[in-house]
Every structure is written in C-alpha cells, then in structure tokens.
Design a protein around this nucleic acid. Structure first.
Lengths: 199, 199
DNA sequence: AATGTTTGCCAACACGTGTTGACTTAACTG
DNA sequence: CAGTTAAGTCAACACGTGTTGGCAAACATT
C-alpha cells in the first residue's frame, strides 16, 4: 500500500516488453495479423510465448500496443498553400520508409476489423484534422482528406505490400514529382461541378 | 474408351462446383484468405468440406480458381485521349461494384504471397498492356500504369476494405470528377523534370 | 437387371493456434 | 539472512484448421 517510488518507475521487465513490441511490429508488418503467430514473435524476442500473454493480455492486446502510431504530421497551417502536396508526400514517404508500423497496420487492416478501425481512427484523428487546420473550407476538408488518404494508402499498398515493380522502382524524388500534384489538387482544387442531377 | 460426347460435356457436378466458387468468392472478399475457412465456404454452398478438396485440390487451388479475374478493360486506343481518365475510373467503379472478386483478391493480397503475385500479374498483363496500347510513349507506359494502379487500388482499399467514411460516401459521379483528372494526368502528362542527379 | 462410375457425406487424423496454470529462478526488501 | 515479489520456463489444454480415406446413395451404361 505504501507507494514511495514515483509513478513511472522503470520496471526490470521493460527491456523484455520493448523487445516483444519490436518483434511484434516486424512480424505484423511482414505477415499480417493472422499469419503472425505469438510463438514466432516470442521466438524473435527470445522469450517464452507466455510472457507475451502476461504483458499484453492477448494477441489483440499485443496488436493494439504494436499498432500505436503517430503520423507526426507537420502543422499544415505553416506550409505555403501551394506546396502542401509536395510537403505531404515527402513526409509520408520518409515516415513509413523509416518505420514499418504503418505497413503492419495496413496489412492487418485488410483482414482484421479492429485494425481497420484503428486505421480509420488514425486518418480521422490525424490526417483529417491536419487538413482541416490548413483548409479554407472546413466543410469539404474531410472529403479532401479522404481523397488524399486514397492516394497515399494506395501508394503504400502498391509499393510496400503488393510490390508492383514500377511503383517499387520509383525513387522518392520521382514519387514526389508525380504524386505531389495529385495531393495538391485534392487539397486546394475548387469543388468539381457536382452536377447533382437526381441520379 | 469410346468417347462419343463432345469434349465439353456438362458434368452433373457443375452446379456444385459453381456454388463452391460463388461462396468462395464471397468469403474471400469478406474475410481475406486466412480467415475464410473451407468449412465456412462449404457451409455457404451447402455441401461437405471434402467436396471442396475433391474439386479444387486444396485451399490454394480453390483460391486460384476463385481469383481468376478479367478487368474487361476497353480498348484504350479507341478512347479520345483527353477522356482516358474519366473512362477508366468509370469503368473500374462499375466493374468492382458489380463483382467482389477484385476485392477478394485485394484483401488476400495483403497477406498471401500467391495472391499478391496474381495481383501483380493482373496489372502487368491487363492494365499495363492496355495503357501501353494507348500511349504515345511506350517507354513510360509501365510507370504510368503503376501510378494509375496506385490510385485505383488505393480507392478500392479505402472504399471497400478499410471503409473510410468520406471515401465510402462519395457517389460514382463525384468519384469520377475527383479521381478522373488524376488518372488522366498520370497517363498523359509529360514526364516531370527528372532531375537525374546520379542515382 | 447388373455393373461400374460419379457425387456426396461422415468421421477422423495430424497439426498449429491462443491461452492457462504450476513451477523454478532471480531480484529486491526488511 | 529470511521472506516476499517479480521474471521467466515448461508442459499441457481446448479448439479450429486443412486434409484424407472409407462408405452409401444416385446415376449411367450395358
């Protein structure tokens, strides 16, 4: 009952916890949710499978911890409006080339409802809000963010998951030159004539 | 030995085969490769799981048969060059709204290497060749087709798999108005200044 | 009618999975 | 040093999976 140490004491098991998390991210990214087994993850982390259960409760719990992800989007309000597309595509390529977490999430989201839910959460809570802050017209911000997501995730899918050769071969500069204008258009183009002729 | 009937005789089991295939497509589309179990597919088709094995050899074999897919792309050489984007996006939305096979393939491709391979095959054998036929510059056709694929598949992913609300809510007309120009640009835009500084 | 073949169902195998609880070892605490 | 707690190991359970072979009914062929 007497708790004299600070709330954030470093437990002796923190190294193990971190090793599990690292192995889990790699496995989830490489194999997806179903094929990434707890036994394989534990083997990578050189511990017993039961440790995973003790520290993360269940496979779902482990995935939830491993799929925590911050896009680290810059403040788009400070970016020159005509360079939004270029800035965003550059940021994304750098971000997921350095950290496989988003690829893991993407792979898992294709089959696991919880992962898909988290994916939606990330894009609503991070992308959509960032776009809204930079947008002159908040009413269309969500739709614009959705279109941006479709291109960004499509790129991640074809480049890192399906590995379509021509998309894999593009270097970051070419990628920026090609896709930047697309993002830019989705963000800043005036609404297309919504010829709302009742279906 | 005496085969009097034509080579393509209709076997009595053809109905069952078709029922299995139909159920398999639905299950693979809804659940992905791993979660779609043979038992569930057989139950949907109202037959015994062992029938699936008899007719398709294995789960891999069943998937191979279920993921046979023809994009049915029109001859792009006959499309007015300034309407390529609109034509393609319209075609794709209609195509995969009517047939869940491509969604099944997409879901499976996220985790199953064989499915990813088939996905690459479809886009190399169908999309890339169609684009090459319409392109003035065959040298860049493959790259352009890859970019088109990234946007098309990203749309399918966000709309039918992850189900991002703003993308789900777009009706086909809005989709065409927004994404058509993107496809158009990927297909017909002159090459961006590839500042080819060594590698 | 008798025979062979196709179509289908049943029960079971072998295996890998997530998960659990009992036990041993290490580390800290008085 | 004794005693308590944390960290880690081991073996096993219960379950669902793909897959297999045997057997009965329906059909086709002579």
């Amino acid at each position: 009952m007497d708790v004299t140490e600070p709330a954030t004491r470093t437990r002796r098991s923190d190294a193990t916890r971190a090793a599990i998390l690292r192995a889990a991210r790699e496995r989830f990214a490489a194999d997806g949710y179903d094929r990434a087994t707890i036994r394989a993850i534990a083997a990578d982390a050189r511990i017993d499978p039961s440790m995973v259960m003790r520290y993360y409760g269940s496979k779902e719990g482990l995935f939830a911890a491993a799929a925590e992800f911050d896009l680290r989007l810059p403040d788009l309000a400070e970016v020159p409006p005509d360079r939004l597309g270029e800035t965003l595509i550059r940021h994304f390529v750098r971000r997921w080339e350095a950290d496989g977490t988003l690829v893991a999430l993407l792979r898992a989201a294709a089959t696991n409802p919880g992962a898909a839910d988290r994916m939606r959460g990330i894009f609503a809570g991070q992308l959509a809000t960032a776009v809204a802050r930079s947008s002159a017209d908040p009413a269309t911000a969500e739709r614009r963010a959705g279109l941006v997501a479709s291109q960004i995730l499509g790129l991640a899918l074809t480049r890192y998951v399906v590995r379509l050769p021509p998309v894999v071969d593009l270097d970051p500069e070419e990628l920026t030159a090609w896709v930047g204008p697309t993002i830019q258009r989705y963000l800043t183009q005036p609404l297309p004539p919504s010829r709302a002729s009742g279906r």
